[in-house]
Amino acid sequence: MSGSTTLAGTVGAAAQVVLVAAGSPLLVGVMRQVRARLEGRAGAGVLQPWRDLRKLLRKEAITPHGTGPVFRAAPLVLAATALVAAGVVPIATTESPLDGAADLFAVTALLALGTVALALAALDTATAFGGMGASREMTVLALVEPTILMSVFALSVPVGSTNLGAIVNSTLHEPQRVVSPVSLLAAVALAVVVIAETGRIPVDNPATHLELTMIHEAMVLEYAGPDLALVEWASAMRLTVLLGLVANLFAPWGIAGADSGWVALAALPLALAAFAAKVTLLGGALAAGEVFMAKLRMFRVPELLAGSFVLALLAVAASFFLA
């Protein structure tokens, strides 16, 4: 690896962290706006999430009675893991210097660590809602895990590596692989995983106001002010990273690859724009889909996840038998 490639990789990684940090509330805004328009409402505009965050940051920090250090640290852990994931995942460049530090397994496990921190914080409040949210979130997390690892398995077989940069680079070099059964099955399975992990309909409803149906919202019920801002922001970043992961695993075009020298650096703005377009498209599609769907009953969710596991298993089988 030449010096300028490392430089391009480092700049690219920094740029993608900044893009995710600044752009993720906008993605949430776009998704809300799409939903509002489809439901016949005017909507609050795509900038509304940023306005909300600014408002929350100016508010007083609250420590509810009986909560301890875990409750205080959880938003920080959630946001920190999301930021690290944003630096590792190939968003703008496949040459991130952190690429070798965490492969696809490590990235998904790192995001799970953030969820765990939030679930512990919810239990720490000692309220029924907190416990309920934590219990449901952990159930979904436990059942999602097999699908994640199986999809990773299917994607890594043709490449021989679970490193994200390697997978994306190999898809770039062999674009016909995208339409193979392996890739399509794994894409559907991963899409279900992303919906479950980010708490979207039909697994969870991010806009619900009824505590009894909440998963994610029940966990963060006690957060207010800057803490809540951090949680909301981190959730938006996780959504962006996961959507971006799906987008670039299956349609990596536009990303800055292992080009030598200053070409890579020059390709970065284009890569960032391509990424923003892809994620906006995916997010818009997700929001449009949500309009036509209702939230599933909690105990129907395992069936959905089992279905996605079967798809992932088929993807692995296809990768062996069709290769």
């Binding site: 920090a61 009675h65 009986g66 006690e222 207010a224």
Partner: peptide, 9 residues
């Protein structure tokens, strides 16, 4: 300063 407050009950 963090203010202490009641839990949502």
């Amino acid at each position: 300063v963090r203010r202490r407050a009641r839990l949502w009950d």
